[in-house]
Design a binder for these strands. Structure first.
Lengths: 205, 205
DNA sequence: CTATAATCGGAGTGGCGGTTCCGGTTCGAC
DNA sequence: GTCGAACCGGAACCGCCACTCCGATTATAG
């Protein structure tokens, strides 16, 4: 606590995080990255039940190293999930501006489906393990929700989507669609079905 | 295979299972039932990570008793899931005969959604825990798949559903829709979206 | 190149939960 | 009512895994 640092040796901090007391030694930074990747791979492949040792081994480091960077298993999850959510969030913003209002939402859903089908394991394994994403990465989830909200609003205004669907429904549907371990093909088709389901029917307001 | 039994002492067996060597003592049978209920309640409430002790306590018996009836935790899951799947399977058959071909599938999906939203926790907690339903309860899953298949075929022939959706897609979609812990209301609306998604559009082949 | 301090690695610790075991209890046949 | 067998309960056992600790290693300043 008290992010009180003898801030004098701070060369180029205050860049990525709120406070970066120390620049982190070169190899340490590399290991951190390595661990993150290994963790994502391991959890995706074996589920969150996978022991930390497995992650460490895959990363080619010792358990101690993992724990120095991420004090707890949950912290490791948070890091991974947050990164992924933020990534998606950026995508919503880009789509919100760069594409036709009626298409942006659908584009996003397809993209989401593509990613989720490959990595969903992590998400639901997490919440099945009692780790609640909503509270662990509250901020990121909120941002993403907001991003999708914007997209949905746009689409509704453009008349591409029915007015009676809610953001929560769309999210749950897409996440769910990609939840079951299916081919990517099946997954894509499910996304299309959802898209058709929320599309404005020929006759409507 | 080879349902070979010294079928002589079989009073009224060959009814529920393949073979019922012993009728099971009265209290034992009652306990078995009690355990089954407690397990379902416990797992639904706390997730599959819940310790067996919790189940035993809820059932008002000792752990030993639980293990005598179900030699392993997985066996307990199997018993519960199989029962539920078979139940749904029966429903498909009833609907396949009793209702208008175009409506049967939709009715089933709604019913499925209703049940799943209340009990889904168990299903996905299971497979997140590495217990694969498909292999654990292979027979039941297959039967249910077949049942839905029939319903889907009917609906297609009746012209109510597009020809390009597969059984696997429908199942995954519905299961997924109910997967996220949402209100029953949201869940029902998602089911409707899926229904709309697979429905034959105004203009089609 | 040397000194210093951060980092690394992995053996060790603690607790949790599935599974087993056995003395005491209860059911059911005679 | 009596006896034997099946059943019950829960203490004890065992392996697994998150997490800690410390001597060895290695990056960086001077």
């Amino acid at each position: 606590m008290t992010a009180e640092t003898t801030s004098e040796q701070v060369t180029k901090a205050a860049e990525g995080s709120v406070a970066t007391p120390r620049p982190l030694r070169a190899d340490a930074a590399k290991n951190r990255e390595r661990i993150l990747e290994a963790a994502e791979a391991t959890f995706t492949a074996e589920g969150v039940a996978a022991p930390i040792d497995a992650v460490a081994q895959r990363a080619g480091v010792g358990v101690g190293t993992v724990y120095r960077h991420f004090p707890t298993k949950e912290a490791l999850f948070e890091a991974i999930v947050t990164a992924r959510l933020d990534d998606l969030c950026v995508k919503t913003r880009r789509l919100a501006e760069g594409e036709r209002p009626g298409d942006a939402l659908f584009s996003f859903l397809r993209e989401f489906g593509r990613q989720a089908s490959a990595k969903q394991d992590l998400f639901d394994a997490m919440d099945a393990a009692g780790i609640d994403i909503k509270s662990t990465c509250a901020t990121s989830v909120e941002e993403l929700t907001h991003g999708i909200d914007v997209l949905l609003e746009q689409a509704k205004r453009a008349g591409a989507v029915r007015g009676d669907v809610a953001t929560a429904e769309v999210m749950a549907l897409i996440v769910g669609a990609c939840h079951s371990k299916q081919d990517d093909v099946v997954c894509q088709r499910m996304v299309e079905i959802v898209c058709d389901g929320i599309r404005t029917p020929a006759a409507a307001t």
